[in-house]
Computed example of a mutant assay.
Amino acid sequence: MPTAYITAPESDASTLARALVDERLAACVNQLPCASTYRWEGEVVDEDEVVLLAKTTDDAYDELRDRVLELHPHETPCIERFDEDDVLDSFAAWRAGAVESDGE
Score class of each variant (00 low, 15 high):
residue 12 D to E: 15
residue 16 L to N: 01
residue 77 P to H: 01
residue 76 T to Q: 13
residue 78 C to L: 04
residue 14 S to A: 15
residue 54 A to Y: 05
residue 23 E to G: 14
residue 102 D to I: 12
residue 51 V to Y: 00
residue 28 C to Y: 01
residue 60 A to S: 12
residue 89 D to I: 12
residue 72 H to P: 02
residue 101 S to A: 13
residue 66 D to H: 13
residue 33 P to K: 04
residue 42 G to W: 06
residue 53 L to A: 05
residue 66 D to F: 05
residue 77 P to I: 00
residue 13 A to I: 02
residue 92 A to E: 14
residue 49 E to L: 02
residue 25 L to V: 15
residue 93 A to D: 14
residue 7 T to W: 01
residue 65 R to V: 15
residue 73 P to Q: 10
residue 104 E to T: 14
residue 12 D to W: 01
residue 83 D to E: 15
residue 5 Y to N: 03
residue 28 C to A: 03
residue 9 P to R: 09
residue 53 L to Y: 03
residue 69 L to A: 08
residue 96 A to Q: 15
residue 70 E to Y: 07
residue 46 D to W: 04
residue 62 D to K: 07
residue 89 D to F: 03
residue 54 A to V: 03
residue 58 D to K: 09
residue 30 N to S: 15
residue 57 T to Y: 12
residue 82 F to P: 03
residue 2 P to W: 11
residue 3 T to G: 00
residue 4 A to G: 10
residue 28 C to M: 02
residue 37 T to F: 06
residue 35 A to V: 05
residue 69 L to K: 07
residue 57 T to G: 10
residue 97 G to T: 12
residue 1 M to H: 14
residue 81 R to Y: 03
residue 62 D to Y: 01
residue 23 E to L: 11
residue 4 A to W: 04
residue 2 P to N: 07
residue 60 A to D: 06
residue 59 D to K: 14
residue 31 Q to F: 00
residue 72 H to N: 02
residue 85 D to M: 08
residue 18 R to T: 10
residue 6 I to Q: 02
residue 100 E to D: 15
residue 99 V to N: 12
residue 21 V to C: 03
residue 27 A to L: 05
residue 5 Y to Q: 09
residue 94 W to R: 08
residue 38 Y to N: 01
residue 5 Y to K: 02
residue 47 E to T: 01
residue 93 A to N: 09
residue 66 D to Q: 13
residue 55 K to T: 04
residue 102 D to E: 13
residue 94 W to D: 05
residue 58 D to H: 11
residue 11 S to Y: 00
residue 22 D to E: 15
residue 43 E to C: 08
residue 85 D to T: 11
residue 17 A to W: 00
residue 78 C to H: 08
residue 51 V to F: 00
residue 18 R to W: 00
residue 37 T to D: 01
residue 27 A to K: 08
residue 58 D to I: 06
residue 104 E to M: 09
residue 55 K to L: 09
residue 36 S to D: 05
residue 100 E to I: 15
residue 57 T to L: 14
residue 24 R to C: 12
residue 75 E to S: 09
residue 51 V to T: 01
residue 90 S to I: 09
residue 2 P to F: 06
residue 71 L to F: 06
residue 45 V to I: 14
residue 15 T to A: 12
residue 68 V to C: 02
residue 104 E to K: 13
residue 2 P to L: 13
residue 85 D to C: 08
residue 32 L to A: 11
residue 103 G to Y: 11
residue 61 Y to M: 11
residue 78 C to W: 03
residue 89 D to Q: 10
residue 95 R to A: 15
residue 93 A to H: 06
residue 57 T to W: 14
residue 45 V to Y: 04
residue 98 A to D: 10
residue 79 I to Q: 07
residue 16 L to M: 07
